[in-house]
């Protein structure tokens, strides 16, 4: 029995630990402040946020999986270019699939769909985790970071869409509408300045909670 097999042996506890870590303790957006560009750009509606979140989860799972498989034969010298090629391939596949089967989402995400390539979260997870850990935990890690990112996007886009339009529309269906806001919406929240304000307040809130806990 060598160390390899021992390491590869599946531990459910560790799997869930890696998964939960990315969602809460090291939430990519609110705690690590990574992947800011899409976080602000596509959160004008919950629909876009869900699309972007699903895309990032797909790419993270794919790239973490492949990079973990080839981690022992990848030469350190060309490590980063290899990661970039793997990530860019998954992003291209995602982009082609979205264009073919979900054209409205493809159009509303625009250049932010290909820009997933330079999302620091994905390259970060490849470098820090997947290139050093067994496949199964790399998948858990990717899923955790991806879900953490998606949850952050959903919170931000929910606040922006509800305040900015007074209603919530998902998959073309209106879920609810708030009487006063929908007749005279606070459009500023849909526009860029509103994105910055919402993020600033959410970050301050996360900090305040942290400060109160420590005291």
């Amino acid at each position: 029995m060598n160390m390899e097999e021992l390491e590869e042996r599946f531990s459910a506890k560790k799997f869930w630990k890696e998964l939960a870590k990315g969602i809460i303790l090291t939430n990519p957006v609110f705690v690590l402040v990574l992947g800011l560009c899409p976080t602000l750009a596509v959160t004008t509606s919950v629909n876009n946020a869900l699309g972007m979140g699903a895309g990032v989860i797909f790419v993270l799972l794919g790239s973490n999986f492949i990079i973990s498989i080839i981690r022992k034969i990848t030469p350190g010298m060309v490590r980063i270019p290899v990661f970039i090629v793997v990530i860019a391939s998954f992003v291209t596949i995602l982009s082609l699939v979205f264009e073919a089967y979900l054209p409205p989402l493809y159009e509303s995400l625009g250049i932010y769909l290909p820009l997933i390539v330079v999302n620091c979260i994905i390259l970060g997870r490849a470098e820090v985790f997947a290139s050093k850990n067994p496949i199964i935990y790399s998948i858990a890690d990717g899923l955790g970071a991806g879900l953490g990112f998606t949850i952050a996007l959903i919170i931000i886009s929910f606040l922006r869409e509800v305040l900015g339009t007074g209603s919530l529309v998902i998959f073309g269906k209106q879920l609810f509408s708030i009487p006063v806001i929908s007749t005279s919406p606070l459009s500023i929240f849909i526009m860029p300045p509103g994105a910055f304000i919402i993020i600033a307040l959410l970050m301050a809130l996360f900090r305040l909670i942290g400060v109160l806990k420590n005291e």
Binding site: T74, V78, V85, V86, S89, T92, I93, L96
Partner: peptide, 20 residues
């Protein structure tokens, strides 16, 4: 080896993308 490995990865990626 590093150069060959990188070239191989790029080649696989290109073939895969052509297919998709």
């Amino acid at each position: 080896y590093p150069i060959i490995f990188l070239a191989l990865i790029v080649f696989i990626a290109v073939v895969l993308l052509m297919y998709v």
